[in-house]
């Protein structure tokens, strides 16, 4: 998988390494900005009220 990506990247080894780094950063950004905020409420750390935020719905 990673070898396949590496072979697809253009340029010499340095250019490939740079592009790989950018790709990794992009993936981490997407994870932190979109994927993890979606997944985090599935964990139990948000339940701190005794009415489950009922007051908000009213």
């Amino acid at each position: 998988m990673y070898g396949w990506i590496w072979r697809r990247l253009p340029g010499n080894a340095w250019v490939r390494a740079l592009i790989s780094l950018l790709l990794v950063l992009a993936v981490v950004y997407v994870l932190f900005q979109y994927v993890f905020p979606w997944a985090e409420p599935l964990l139990p750390f948000n339940d701190v009220t005794v009415d489950n935020g009922m007051a908000v719905n009213q």
């Binding site: 009220t49 009415d51 007051a55």
Partner: peptide, 17 residues
């Protein structure tokens, strides 16, 4: 003011009412 999930990410929440 309020105890919504998004709100509690920015501070403590006061139970409305």
């Amino acid at each position: 003011e309020g105890t919504g999930t998004d709100l509690l990410k920015r501070g403590l929440g006061h139970y409305e009412r």
